[in-house]
Simulated assay, not measured.
Amino acid sequence: MISLNLPKVPVPHQVAELMLATMPESVCEAAVEAESAVRELGRLRPLASDEDRADREDELGRLALANKTLAAYSPRFVIGPWERAA
């Protein structure tokens, strides 16, 4: 089987609003929470200090909780900690 690594294409703002309007409120909130957690994970350095490590673990927990809600709606919505936030 051939798998293609296609680049992510940005979604226009109006299209994103239409898509969000069709989803339940809890899924929209989880998507925002996941994006926020990914943004914070990109800001933190994992081996810098004890406080940064603790903050990183907290953000990973927030991301996991948001991903649980997103995956219940659709497994394709899961956001990994390695992904870049918009």
Rank of each mutant, 00 (worst) to 15 (best):
M1S: 07
M1W: 10
S3W: 12
S3D: 05
S3F: 08
L4G: 03
N5W: 08
N5F: 11
P7F: 11
P7L: 11
K8N: 05
K8P: 06
V9A: 02
V9L: 14
H13E: 08
H13L: 10
V15N: 00
E17T: 04
M19I: 11
M23E: 04
M23K: 13
P24M: 15
P24S: 06
E25L: 03
C28Y: 07
A30Q: 15
A30W: 00
V32T: 06
V32E: 06
E33S: 08
A34I: 10
E35D: 05
S36N: 14
S36R: 15
S36C: 09
S36P: 02
S36K: 08
A37W: 12
R39W: 12
L41Y: 07
L41T: 05
R43C: 09
P46K: 13
S49R: 11
E51T: 11
E51A: 15
D52Y: 09
D52N: 09
R53K: 13
D55A: 13
R56F: 14
R56G: 15
G61Y: 14
R62V: 09
L63F: 01
A64N: 01
A66P: 10
N67Y: 07
K68C: 05
L70D: 08
L70K: 06
S74Y: 01
S74L: 06
P75C: 07
F77E: 00
V78H: 12
G80E: 07
W82M: 06
W82T: 01
R84H: 08
R84C: 05
